[in-house]
Design a protein around this nucleic acid. Structure first.
Lengths: 248, 248
DNA sequence: CGAACGTTTGAGATGACTCAAGCGTTGTGG
DNA sequence: CCACAACGCTTGAGTCATCTCAAACGTTCG
């Protein structure tokens, strides 16, 4: 089941059986994608949305000088550009960061769902509002945290999100991102990210080597990044990764 | 008509007559509010949303040390916390910046609308996605612009938004905000905002004195702030304030 | 008149940036 | 199988933007 991870462990918004069947039926195509591809460009009219099954994708905005700011990172179980359904055209680009597998859902399928399943429609709306809540957490991160705090916040968030879909054991996870990617997430240069990563290592907070992230002290890391997972609207069972240790 | 400015001049999303009547009928109460009040705190369960008729409101997040980052500024015609309807509890605070008048709409009214007016439901969804688009523009602003660029971007955005609801003539508008408010919007200190304002004045781009903002060269200011109004999804008539000069 | 608030200025500290270069892996073609 | 290119990571030195702390100024309002 492709959408198994969709809205998994989100507070009170589990999809009903019939809703999930409907969503699966709406999938038009499943595609595998190469890393670092741009899939949708800002301004293009959109007639479908992508559900991320595997891999990491991003939404980002370019400035004129080839520098990018990521506005969202998407992990397995995310509807990457569901907001493109009401919006019809995007204000930013969408692309892969790692290799990825996506399910393609045509907007016409959403038209049908909205028309005859108002409860499910509200759940889809909820899913897009969750993305907006993450945008806000990122605004806080960029506006009020220093470099170490930003990276700490970002890693804490990623850990919590991966934990909720079963891809982190609460302390350790595979993240196929480079330090330059983290720089584009945190509004920093990759050189400075490197120094931050060293500091986090020296302070025994967190290790980040090539693609493995190991959070040594989730609680202290969260405090350093002023990370409070409320905005992820997780179910109680997954709200605090640091308390459990899953065999992942 | 209280909601006259709602979705005004947004590309293709004008409310139908019947939809507007329904929205007006959903208003439970109209309240006037003092400046600088907190109305909703993060985490509180929510049973109503506020539509802003007059004044300026904000959504913001506190760090532990009494510093705030605004995540949104709301102007007349905005549904301030419509996203609270699907979300049920907010991840941030909502408050007034200036004195304000708001219409209170209970969530039960939205339940009814979503159930029997799917087209209108999608327009409300669209309205919340517009807020998310603004979040993204703000992320770009904080992540990739320097202090002058951030203020330039912010003022350009405010001008465009006020223009679309008839509260700016394209170059001049009343903005009851202090430089400290702008600092909380732009992730800067109020002292540095003051220096930025001086620079903008010296470069003949823009004047900001007490509550009057006068943009001398909208085009140059937009370039300085890398402001591209696409994300506001304005109708063509209002997309470029710098071209017209209304008698406001 | 005095208090409160917002604005303005200065001096010094500092966090993050730029530029430049070297290092370590990995993958590939001669 | 080695050489080399490509890529990501690491380090250093110097610069600059923004911050902090401190204080003064102007207006408004009670």
């Amino acid at each position: 089941m492709f959408t198994e991870r969709f809205m998994k462990n989100r507070r009170g918004i589990l999809l009903e059986r019939g809703e999930r069947v409907r969503l699966e039926a709406a999938i038009e195509d499943v595609r595998t994608l190469h890393p670092r591809m741009t899939l949708v460009r800002a301004g293009e009219p959109l007639h479908q949305s992508l559900f991320l099954i595997e891999g990491i994708m991003s939404r980002h905005m370019d400035d004129g000088n080839g520098r990018r700011q990521l506005v969202a990172v998407h992990l397995p179980g995310d509807f990457v550009d569901l907001h493109g359904y009401p919006l019809k055209r995007l204000d930013h680009d969408v692309g892969t960061m790692t290799a990825a597998t996506v399910a393609v859902v045509p907007h016409s399928a959403f038209d049908a769902i909205v028309a005859d399943m108002p409860v499910m429609a509200r759940k889809l709306w909820f899913a897009t509002m969750l993305d907006a809540a993450m945008h806000r957490a990122w605004l806080f991160r960029l506006g009020r945290l220093d470099a170490i705090g930003r990276v700490a916040h970002s890693l804490s968030e990623t850990n919590a999100r991966l934990f909720s879909v079963g891809l982190s054991n609460g302390r350790r996870f595979v993240l196929g991102l480079t330090q330059a990617d983290v720089a584009e997430i945190c509004g920093l240069t990759h050189i400075h990210v490197n120094r931050v990563v060293r500091t986090l290592r020296e302070q025994q907070l967190c290790l980040f080597r090539s693609s493995l992230v190991e959070i040594l002290e989730p609680q202290r890391l969260a405090v350093r990044g002023q990370f409070d997972p409320h905005y992820l609207y997780l179910s109680d069972a997954t709200a605090d990764p640091s308390r459990s240790e899953r065999s992942s």
